[in-house]
Simulated assay, not measured.
Amino acid sequence: MEQQRHFFFAAVIPDEMKKAMKAHCEQLKEVLPFRSWVYYEDFHITLTFLGGASSDRLQKAMDNVATAVKNFEPFPLQITNLGIFGKKDEPRVLWAGMKESSALQSIQTNVYSSCLDAGFELETRPFRPHLTIARKWIGEEPFQRQFLEKWAEIQPEPLEFNVQQIALYETHLNKLPKYEAVQMFT
């Protein structure tokens, strides 16, 4: 049985930052027991998750996004901290957070609106920019907030990089890297 194809738009993380994050994650793995760690080539900042899509609707979204981001200028982002989603003592996701960025917020709003205009039903929760780095706490002891301070020990200064591209990614669950850039927008 063929799996349904899933798509999402994301801010592309430059290769050198992916490698820096990989090194940090190797250190975090030693002290934070999560079931799975994101493959470093898959790091990205999701702007809008589409899920499954017909070819026509996907093409309309790509056309809309191309128009919406046509004049975007590269902008800096900073990775500043760790956070979690899920239960406080047994989180389902460990993520690296970003310093607030009006440029990122603007791009996300434009991409989101473009996808709505293409007929997609989208997530309605507020946008919380992050890099997912691990999933499913498996520690013998409950997760504790002080574990999030491990980031400051590994990286006392924010990691800065420039967002220069937006991509439409397709998910491949049984491959590494899991996410394939289908179309790039600069």
Score class of each variant (00 low, 15 high):
residue 109 T to M: 13
residue 107 I to A: 15
residue 107 I to L: 15
residue 91 P to V: 01
residue 87 K to F: 02
residue 86 G to R: 02
residue 90 E to K: 13
residue 87 K to P: 02
residue 87 K to C: 02
residue 105 Q to D: 15
residue 90 E to V: 03
residue 88 K to F: 00
residue 95 W to A: 11
residue 83 G to Y: 07
residue 93 V to F: 03
residue 77 L to I: 12
residue 94 L to K: 07
residue 75 F to D: 07
residue 97 G to V: 04
residue 100 E to K: 15
residue 81 N to S: 12
residue 103 A to C: 09
residue 78 Q to V: 08
residue 103 A to S: 14
residue 88 K to M: 01
residue 97 G to N: 10
residue 94 L to C: 08
residue 87 K to N: 13
residue 109 T to L: 14
residue 98 M to R: 06
residue 83 G to H: 10
residue 90 E to S: 15
residue 106 S to I: 00
residue 78 Q to I: 08
residue 108 Q to G: 11
residue 106 S to D: 14
residue 82 L to D: 03
residue 95 W to D: 04
residue 95 W to N: 07
residue 101 S to Q: 11
residue 77 L to F: 07
residue 104 L to T: 09
residue 87 K to I: 02
residue 99 K to I: 09
residue 96 A to N: 03
residue 95 W to L: 13
residue 88 K to S: 06
residue 98 M to T: 08
residue 90 E to C: 13
residue 86 G to F: 05
residue 80 T to I: 05
residue 104 L to R: 06
residue 108 Q to L: 12
residue 94 L to R: 08
residue 98 M to V: 12
residue 106 S to E: 15
residue 80 T to P: 04
residue 91 P to F: 06
residue 86 G to M: 06
residue 82 L to G: 04
residue 78 Q to K: 14
residue 94 L to P: 05
residue 77 L to E: 04
residue 81 N to P: 00
residue 89 D to L: 06
residue 94 L to A: 09
residue 94 L to D: 04
residue 96 A to L: 13
residue 80 T to W: 02
residue 103 A to N: 12
residue 100 E to T: 15
residue 84 I to G: 05
residue 106 S to Y: 10
residue 81 N to W: 00
residue 81 N to R: 04
residue 100 E to L: 13
residue 104 L to W: 06
residue 87 K to A: 11
residue 77 L to T: 05
residue 101 S to G: 07
residue 82 L to Q: 04
residue 90 E to Y: 08
residue 99 K to N: 10
residue 104 L to A: 04
residue 105 Q to F: 10
residue 100 E to M: 12
residue 100 E to G: 12
residue 100 E to S: 15
residue 108 Q to R: 14
residue 108 Q to D: 14
residue 108 Q to V: 11
residue 89 D to R: 12
residue 89 D to M: 06
residue 94 L to Q: 05
residue 86 G to A: 09
residue 78 Q to Y: 02
residue 77 L to D: 03
residue 93 V to A: 08
residue 84 I to K: 01
residue 93 V to E: 04
residue 98 M to D: 03
residue 91 P to E: 11
residue 77 L to V: 14
residue 88 K to P: 06
residue 76 P to A: 10
residue 93 V to M: 04
residue 107 I to M: 14
residue 96 A to E: 06
residue 76 P to F: 09
residue 102 S to M: 12
residue 98 M to F: 14
residue 92 R to G: 08
residue 85 F to G: 00
residue 84 I to D: 00
residue 97 G to Q: 10
residue 101 S to D: 10
residue 93 V to S: 04
residue 107 I to V: 15
residue 79 I to M: 09
residue 77 L to A: 04
residue 84 I to M: 02
residue 107 I to R: 11
residue 94 L to M: 09
residue 103 A to D: 12
residue 101 S to T: 08
